[in-house]
């Protein structure tokens, strides 16, 4: 089981290096609290946006077939394989002051770079594919005849979607949403480029861990352990909810 050892040993080392005596002191430090609050806030907002904006797109992709659909699906999956640094630079070139939308945003008095909005945008960009891929697979498994039958019975479009489509596909949607949320929590590269690093405003947990590594290793290990613990707890809870189906379906 060399694979299992390779996966588990580093996480175990984090736990072994944790300064248990000083744990509460580190946890209560402003750096940790601010980073934790910011990460949970932005990560949850990003996951919510991904579900709201990603569900209609996923449904369309699942119901259409053809070359265009394959092309769009590939585009959507691209952020999964791109280095996050590329995502950060690309986002700057769109939303930055001299970016494509820069003059328009500046005219409207909207500031995105260096704000929590940029953190959320970066997270949505890298996390959306995880939700969309899962949701498309979930929707594709539903027999369109069921939806048609409900429509013939007089259900509205929204009623069909809510009571038939979503009612059947929810395990896939939930699994995808959780993966998107977890990916948002872990987002680093795009964030540090696009949103910068400012404690309490754009310094999420991964950024605080990275900079803490250079400054105060105890804080970095505490934050890292916290991130692992939170992610583990959520994954376990969702797995329990979904039964043996698992997140990867």
């Amino acid at each position: 089981m060399p694979m299992l050892v390779l996966l588990v040993l580093p996480l175990l080392a984090l736990g072994l290096n944790l300064d248990y005596a000083g744990l509460w002191v580190h946890l209560a430090s402003p750096v940790v609290m601010q980073a934790l609050a910011l990460s949970l806030g932005t990560g949850s907002t990003a996951a919510l946006l991904v579900v709201l904006l990603g569900t209609p797109l996923s449904y369309l992709l699942a119901r259409r077939t053809g070359r265009l659909q394959v092309f769009v699906e590939t585009l959507v999956e691209l952020p999964m394989v791109l280095p996050p640094a590329v995502a950060g630079v690309a986002l700057l070139l769109v939303f930055g002051r001299r970016g494509l939308l820069g003059p328009f945003l500046e005219g409207a008095g909207v500031q995105i770079v260096f704000t929590p909005v940029a953190v959320v945008l970066a997270q949505v960009f890298v996390a959306a594919p995880f939700y969309i891929t899962a949701a498309v697979a979930g929707f594709a498994e539903i027999d369109p005849d069921l939806e048609q039958a409900a429509a013939l019975e007089g259900a509205s479009d929204w009623g069909v979607f809510r009571h038939v489509t979503v009612a059947l596909a929810w395990p896939a949607l939930l699994a995808g949403a959780v993966m998107a949320w977890a990916r948002s929590l872990g987002e680093f590269g795009a964030t540090i480029i696009f949103a910068g690093n400012f404690p309490g405003r754009t310094q999420t947990m991964p950024l605080a861990i990275y900079l803490g590594f250079e400054r105060d290793l105890d804080i970095a290990v505490t934050l890292a352990f916290l991130l692992v613990a939170v992610s583990f707890a959520v994954l376990v809870a969702v797995k329990g909810l979904l039964g043996r189906r698992g997140l990867g379906r």
Partner: peptide
């Protein structure tokens, strides 16, 4: 608005 990780990134964000 941001505390960067090295001096070249500070320069890049000003150049941009």
């Amino acid at each position: 608005v941001s505390y960067e990780d090295n001096v070249r990134v500070v320069l890049a964000k000003v150049q941009l």
